[in-house]
Simulated scan of single mutants.
Amino acid sequence: MRIHYLQHVPFEDLGMMAPVLVTGGHQLSKTQFFKSCTLPSVNDFDCLIVMGGPMGANDEPSYPWLYEEKKLIEQAVRHKKNILGICLGA
């Protein structure tokens, strides 16, 4: 399975999920908003994991990438992708 995860801050990564997923044969890709705001197409992944962070879901003025991130999540829902939301991602 192709799994893409959205990481908002350096200290909120996949943690112990990463080695388990890789060992299980899954392909991982990521968007790290603190480095870049390049988002994949909804067709580029089978599962989306949205990690946490100190920002709130409605903090677009301070974190303008939240708008595009929420659009991607909405597309993932419409395309019936598997989604795991953790903290902010929930």
Rank of each mutant, 00 (worst) to 15 (best):
23 T>D: 12
37 C>H: 15
9 V>F: 09
75 Q>L: 14
25 G>I: 01
48 L>I: 07
16 M>K: 01
31 T>E: 08
47 C>W: 14
37 C>Q: 14
29 S>W: 00
45 F>Y: 15
68 E>I: 01
50 V>N: 10
85 G>F: 11
88 L>M: 12
59 D>A: 09
23 T>P: 00
51 M>S: 08
41 S>Q: 10
87 C>Y: 08
40 P>N: 05
73 I>D: 07
3 I>T: 14
5 Y>C: 07
87 C>M: 11
62 S>D: 15
14 L>C: 07
74 E>Y: 11
80 K>A: 15
70 K>I: 01
87 C>V: 13
24 G>L: 02
88 L>E: 12
89 G>H: 06
64 P>Y: 07
90 A>Q: 12
34 F>G: 05
16 M>P: 02
27 Q>R: 10
51 M>L: 15
38 T>A: 13
71 K>D: 00
15 G>E: 06
1 M>H: 06
70 K>D: 04
51 M>F: 08
84 L>R: 03
59 D>F: 07
45 F>D: 07
25 G>F: 01
18 A>P: 06
24 G>V: 00
7 Q>P: 03
22 V>D: 01
64 P>R: 03
44 D>L: 02
22 V>C: 00
73 I>M: 12
9 V>C: 08
9 V>D: 04
22 V>A: 09
37 C>M: 03
90 A>I: 06
3 I>L: 13
83 I>K: 10
40 P>L: 02
7 Q>S: 01
46 D>W: 06
45 F>A: 09
66 L>W: 02
75 Q>I: 00
74 E>N: 14
24 G>H: 01
88 L>S: 09
67 Y>R: 13
56 G>N: 14
76 A>D: 06
14 L>E: 04
25 G>V: 05
59 D>K: 00
53 G>S: 10
33 F>Y: 15
78 R>S: 11
88 L>Y: 05
35 K>G: 00
89 G>Y: 03
52 G>M: 14
52 G>C: 10
37 C>G: 13
68 E>T: 09
20 V>A: 11
19 P>M: 06
20 V>W: 02
58 N>D: 15
11 F>K: 10
2 R>Q: 09
9 V>G: 11
70 K>G: 03
4 H>W: 10
9 V>N: 02
12 E>M: 12
51 M>G: 04
49 I>G: 03
86 I>E: 09
59 D>H: 04
50 V>T: 04
57 A>V: 13
88 L>C: 02
